[in-house]
């Protein structure tokens, strides 16, 4: 089946934006928690986290997971504190 122009545009965009130092989805998962905390706190990200952000912006699958992650983190709020105290 012929590609649609939309698909062709997607392919060309992916090819044009390809770089040598891309990380994989597994590597992205390792840093996704840190990226989410930076973003939710509105903090400026450092270079190591910027690599994760770049992958999330480029990879549609990690982007979908990241969006759900942000929603989940907003839903649970701040569940950790120091020191450990029973709240029931």
């Amino acid at each position: 089946m012929p590609l649609t122009y939309e698909q062709l545009k997607g392919l060309i965009g992916f090819v044009a934006e390809t770089t040598d130092d891309e990380i994989t989805c597994i590597e992205c998962l390792v840093g996704m928690a840190e990226l989410a905390e930076f973003q939710l706190a509105g903090r400026e990200i450092d270079d190591a986290v910027a690599v994760i952000r770049d992958h999330v912006e480029f990879c549609p699958e990690c982007a979908e997971e990241y969006e759900v992650l942000l929603g989940a983190l907003e839903a649970i709020g701040d569940v950790e504190d120091e020191p450990a105290v029973a709240t029931d």
Binding site: A33, E34, A36, L69, L73, I76, E80
Partner: peptide, 10 residues
Amino acid sequence: RSKFTTWAMT
């Protein structure tokens, strides 16, 4: 490098 629960949620 993050909260434990953030990591678990990923």
